[in-house]
Structure formats: structure tokens, C-alpha cells
Amino acid sequence: MTLKTIATEAGVHVSTVSRALRRAAQDGTNATPGDIRILEIAEALGYVPNPNAASLTTRRSHSFGVLVPQLTDAVLATVYDAVEETANAAGYATFVANTRDDPVEQLRQVSLLLGRAVDGLIIGDARLDNNNIEQIASRGIDVVLVNRRSGAAVHSTSDDILGGDIAGSHLINLGHRKLGVIGGPSWVSTTADRLSGFRAALSRHGIPFADEAIRYEGFDAAAGRRGMESLLASGTPPTGVFVMNDEAAIGALGVLRDRGLTPGEDVSIIGFNDIPIARELFIPLTTVRISLRQMGVRAVESMLTLIHGLPTSSSAQPPELVVRATTGPAPI
């Protein structure tokens, strides 16, 4: 039984259940008839109030801390907007901190947020190459990861393995055999998982793929430009390139423009995320779409569930291929 189970039974949103249970767990004077009804439904389903709930007003701030590498990233900005909106609807404020993907800065920002007595941390800058998330969780704070995964921590992400598989399959189906990848750092789960899915698609079709065709650059336009320039300068330049972020894909498209190459004809490019500008480009970007907003919503719903002492699990948004003009048949 989860917070969502209660919400479904009561016919209300998860955030409404969270507010009702919190008010009902206090002295009862602020609880509305609707709150009492929701509490009765929850108890009928087997809900046992969190023993800390009654002291929320004195021990907690009704706020979440949110850590991101940089909020100027279009993907993270969209996710954070959904996090803030969903948290606010449940009666929680959010404090966001940029860490620049620096593990030392991450721990410093966590300490500052804990100093604000936040009720939980939603972390968007988890890495695979350290144990920071385990360290943070050991401090007794509820933690939910968003956009990235790490260890056994509860996370709200996209199905990155399937998304990478979809990207690889699309290029293969168009006849491309000389393929390249432009990803983020190797210690980011989105890079590792999308690459894993891409490799799986190629393996099913018996297409060899060497590590030399991978560029670990980053997720912004400058990173995409560096990666594409490097791939085109290699001994076997690719005809099809999977770029693991739409902003990076835009940088890669800029390189093709500068060299007089036509996307979808000379070189095919497929991105990931489907940020709004992707469909508005002069040559609209083929990409793998995921619901960034739903990723943020699910992160908050998981956090609310943890705060109320209920079980929750990780979630992954399903990816969807969106074919536009930057991919086409492999050149003969």
C-alpha cells in the first residue's frame, strides 16, 4: 500500500493525500472533514501514521532541497519546474542548489540544505563513481534521485536503456552501419544506460561497434560540437550519430552546417529528450521523447510517500521515437 493507493481509493491527487495526512497527524484542529475522510480511508487500507508526523510543525520546515548540476540545462529546468509545482501543491516549498556535478560541492550544498531542516532531498546530480548518495542517506534524510540513478536509491528517471535501444534501432533500420555516439561523462547513469541500450540494438543486428566511436563530452551544445568535430575527423567518420541530449545534438548540427553537410542526408543525427526547441529548428530534430515533467512529478510523489513512512519504488518514464528531418537513409 502506497500514497498513490490511498489517492486512488479516495479519488484525489497524491498531493491532496499528503496534505490531509499531515494535518490529521497534528493536533487535529486544522484537519478538515475531507482530511478526516482521507485518514479513515488510509487506515482502512492499513496505513499506520509516521511516528514523526505529529512533530512536523516543530521539527520540519515543510520543504525539500533539490540538487542539480546546473539549472540552465533545459532538461533539468523542465524537471525542476514540475518538482516545484508538485511540491507546492502538496504544501511544500523547494530550495534548489547548483553543484556543477562537483562531488565536494554536492556534499557542501547538502549540509547547507540540512541546515534549513528540509524534509527530504531530491537529487539530480548523482554519479556512479562515488558513494555520496549512500553518505547522504546515512544522515537520516529521505532521498529520491531524479533523472539519474545510483545504487539502490529510489529514483525517477527515463528508461534510458530502452531509449538507447530505440535510437540505435532507428539508425540501423535506415541502413546506417557506420555509427557514432556523443554522450555525457561515463560516470553519469544516463550515459551508461543509453549506451548500453544502443549497443544492445547493434548487437542484435550483428553490427560491430568500437569504443573509438564514442565521445564522452557532455550534455550542452558546446559538448555536441566537440564530439561531432572529433567524430568527423576520425578515420571512419559515421553516417549516423546518436547524441544523448537534444542540446548537444543542436551543437552537432552546427558542425554539419559549418561544413556544408545536410542533416538527414549526409549525416543522420538523433537526439534524446525532445525539448521544445527540437521541433522548431530550421531542420527539425529527430529524437527520443520522454516526459520530463512526469519524471519530476514522480520524484515528488515518491518523496511524499517516504515522508509518510509508506513503501515506494523507482520509476522510469517510457521513451518514444519522434522522427523528424535530421535522420534519413544512409548515403550510398
Rank of each mutant, 00 (worst) to 15 (best):
D165A: 14
I38S: 09
A222M: 13
V68F: 11
A222G: 12
N50C: 04
L179D: 01
A24P: 07
E9N: 13
G184L: 02
R127N: 10
V48W: 09
A7P: 03
E85R: 15
A20I: 07
K178D: 15
N173S: 12
I6W: 11
P49M: 06
A126K: 00
P263R: 07
T29P: 11
T32C: 12
L195N: 04
R108A: 14
V255G: 10
T94F: 11
S150Q: 06
A82H: 08
G260Q: 09
A7K: 03
A221F: 08
A223H: 14
P49S: 05
A89L: 12
E247A: 09
E40W: 03
I250T: 12
N132T: 04
W187C: 12
T239D: 10
P49Q: 11
D159E: 14
V323I: 15
W187E: 10
R289K: 12
A137K: 14
A248E: 09
A330W: 01
V83C: 01
V181H: 02
E217D: 09
L162A: 13
I122D: 13
E301T: 09
I275L: 07
F198M: 01
A20Y: 11
F272P: 00
P329C: 02
T99M: 05
G271V: 00
G180I: 02
A93H: 07
T157R: 01
E9P: 03
G184Y: 06
D35W: 11
P311G: 00
G260A: 14
V66Q: 05
I41K: 09
V288W: 04
V323E: 08
S111H: 15
I122N: 02
I269A: 01
V96C: 08
G46Y: 13
D211A: 05
G271H: 01
H170P: 05
A221G: 10
D160M: 06
A54P: 12
G115W: 07
L3K: 06
M244G: 03
F209P: 06
N88Q: 08
G163C: 02
R139E: 15
G184M: 08
D142S: 14
T326Q: 04
E40A: 13
L113H: 09
I123G: 10
I182P: 03
A248K: 00
K178C: 06
T29C: 09
N131Y: 05
S268W: 13
S61Q: 11
V146M: 07
L145T: 08
N147Q: 12
N273Y: 04
A54M: 15
T57D: 14
A89M: 05
G46F: 12
A299E: 11
G124P: 07
E265A: 05
T236Y: 11
A167W: 08
S315I: 08
S150N: 09
A31C: 15
L39W: 12
G163S: 00
I41S: 14
R257M: 10
A117V: 01
V146F: 14
Q106H: 13
Y80S: 04
D266V: 03
R22V: 13
T57G: 06
T262K: 10
I38G: 08
W187F: 15
S169P: 05
R215C: 00
A117P: 11
L281P: 02
P318V: 02
R194M: 04
S313Q: 04
L114M: 15
S230C: 07
Q106T: 13
A74L: 14
R108D: 13
A7W: 05
N30F: 12
D101Q: 07
H170M: 02
A90W: 02
F64Y: 07
